[in-house]
Design a protein around this nucleic acid. Structure first.
Lengths: 117, 117
DNA sequence: CTCGCCTGTCAGCCTTTTCTGACAGGTACG
DNA sequence: CGTACCTGTCAGAAAAGGCTGACAGGCGAG
């Protein structure tokens, strides 16, 4: 169990992780998936949330690398997307934050059309 | 330097911390204060930000317990509020998140007038 | 008394997030 | 073929956050 903390996270990376986890619903989603992996519809019913909304939250969590989704074919041929938590480990200290802050891609308010690269 | 990580954060507490740190500006504010404590107006000039806005961000950070503000009297009698980072240390793992998620005060969409206690 | 620098707050605008309802496609079962 | 369950996406409403300019008070120096 001696997990090693994530070295020095990028500003953008840490930003995505924190803003993803800084939401009550998403936090509960992680908690639910922590107990057992589940597919979207079932999870939606379990935590009482609309599918479209849950879908959005899961995407956000996956984009931050906190959960992973896998599209699987059930025996009866139905396609179901199972999600499970990823084994993340971040340390949150002033030093880490300061370090990360220095590497933030100023994507603020940009028209988003100037996606260089 | 053997700092000990924060035990088991409350859902609300962790939520405040994460949503506070999950913002590029606030992250940079922490970074700036990490180098040296500073007072509001000077800090505002340093990171190029309006005073009212910075004030709001600082409040959010302070509410999360990440920075502390102290109103001090300068030699010439001027009142200046100095801010500095608090020595926080949070561990971010699926387990911690799941644990915290269970203790979330469902303040969602509540009229906020029913602030019991 | 006016200027400069400090503190704070408030109303209002604007952008981003969050959330909902409706739609479309797929496979299996009666 | 109609029903039931799965998947996804999109437009548009509703709410939350971020941001700005203006205002008010305090103290010291010229």
């Amino acid at each position: 169990m001696a997990e090693v903390p994530h070295p020095a996270p990028t500003g953008d990376e840490l930003l995505k992780v924190l803003s993803a986890l800084g939401n009550p619903h998403r936090m509960r989603i992680v908690a639910a998936l922590q107990e057992r992996r589940n597919y979207v519809s079932a999870l939606a019913r379990e935590i009482g949330m609309g599918r479209p909304l849950l879908h959005m939250h899961l995407q956000r969590l996956e984009a931050a690398g906190l959960v992973v989704g896998t599209l699987e074919l059930a025996e009866d041929g139905k396609a179901m997307k199972y999600y499970e938590v990823a084994p993340f480990f971040y340390e949150l200290t002033p030093h880490v934050v300061a370090r990360a802050a220095a590497t933030i891609t100023e994507t603020t308010a940009r028209t988003a059309k100037e996606e260089t690269k």
